[in-house]
């Protein structure tokens, strides 16, 4: 670009100002980042402390007397079957995520790409279901699970959790952007309607699917209330329910809880770092479009 000299000077000063405000912004974000990160760091370092040191003056981030005792007690399985509970969480979360992705994308596809009688009414109803708090259904849902003999099984968590009006909404919004020409082209090639969803809709909804996968997985992985009610034996508990056990009436096993929290967060963290490009792309590209 050709630039004349007076405007160059103006640009330079504007650039300087812009750089200065960028530095300020960067510093603000850095401070916020420290505030956001501190509880995590405290969780990790606290997991290497004895309970006595977590509550001792002066407060320190770095343990003065680091110990692996919390991890040993946790992994020994003598107090709670922690590894088993993490495994339960993994099975439930993965299955729930897969099922939810399939249902949400299929239903979202139906709403995004077809005109049919009753569509608006059904979609409004679907959005209205978002308003119902989970707590309303707790007791009846529990009684239903009893009747279906699903109580204390993985399915009692997976099945209700896989239905997500939010997920359908998200997928519909993403799929609206897929051009109809592609569908027509596929139809001319002789593809079935399901085939179009599978080969055209799903691949092009990638970013939306990935954000839904992340949110569903995290929601399921971290869910507390419903598993607390639907699962009954500590061998079946998910890890948040198991860790809450250490939160005793008269004694709170902070060290062990923090160790468990760190271990349970670790796999998510790894997935996060490995798939970070895709997450950010998915989170930003696929989310909501008006």
């Amino acid at each position: 670009m050709a630039v004349t000299s007076p405007s160059l000077a103006r640009r330079a000063s504007a650039g300087l100002r812009r750089n200065a405000s960028m530095v300020v912004l960067f510093l603000v974000l850095l401070v916020l980042g420290v505030l956001v990160g501190a509880p995590f760091v405290y969780m990790v370092t606290g997991s290497f402390k004895f309970n006595a040191e977590i509550f001792a003056y002066p407060l320190r981030f770095i343990p003065t007397n680091p110990t692996l005792e919390n991890y040993q007690r946790l992994l020994s399985g003598e107090e709670i079957p922690f590894l088993r509970q993490v495994f339960n969480s993994a099975v439930i979360s993965i299955n729930q995520t897969l099922l939810s992705l399939f249902i949400s994308s299929l239903v979202g596809w139906g709403f995004a790409k077809y005109e049919f009688r009753g569509k608006n009414a059904l979609f409004t109803f679907l959005l209205a279901t978002l308003m119902f708090p989970m707590q309303v259904t707790l007791v009846p849902l529990f009684l239903l699970m009893v009747r279906l003999t699903l109580l204390d099984t993985y399915w009692s968590i997976i099945l209700p959790g896989a239905l997500s009006a939010f997920g359908v909404f998200l997928m519909r919004q993403t799929m609206l952007a897929i051009p109809d020409d592609l569908l027509d082209a596929a139809r001319i090639d002789g593809s079935s309607e399901f085939g179009i969803y599978w080969r055209v809709g799903l691949p092009l909804a990638g970013p939306g699917l990935s954000i839904l996968a992340v949110l569903t997985f995290l929601g399921s992985w971290n869910n507390y209330l419903w598993p607390l009610i639907a699962l009954r034996s500590d061998e079946k508990f998910t890890f948040p329910v198991g860790l809450a056990t250490l939160f005793g009436l008269y004694k709170i096993e902070y060290g062990m809880i923090l160790a468990g929290a760190f271990l349970a967060t670790l796999p998510i963290l790894v997935i996060f770092v490995v798939g970070r490009k895709q997450f950010v792309a998915g989170l930003t590209a696929g989310a909501v479009k008006g």
Partner: peptide, 15 residues
């Protein structure tokens, strides 16, 4: 388009 395909592939690997 390319990006979303790649995303989808990664996702399928994950799933």
């Amino acid at each position: 388009k390319k990006l979303s395909r790649r995303d989808f592939l990664r996702l399928s690997a994950l799933t």
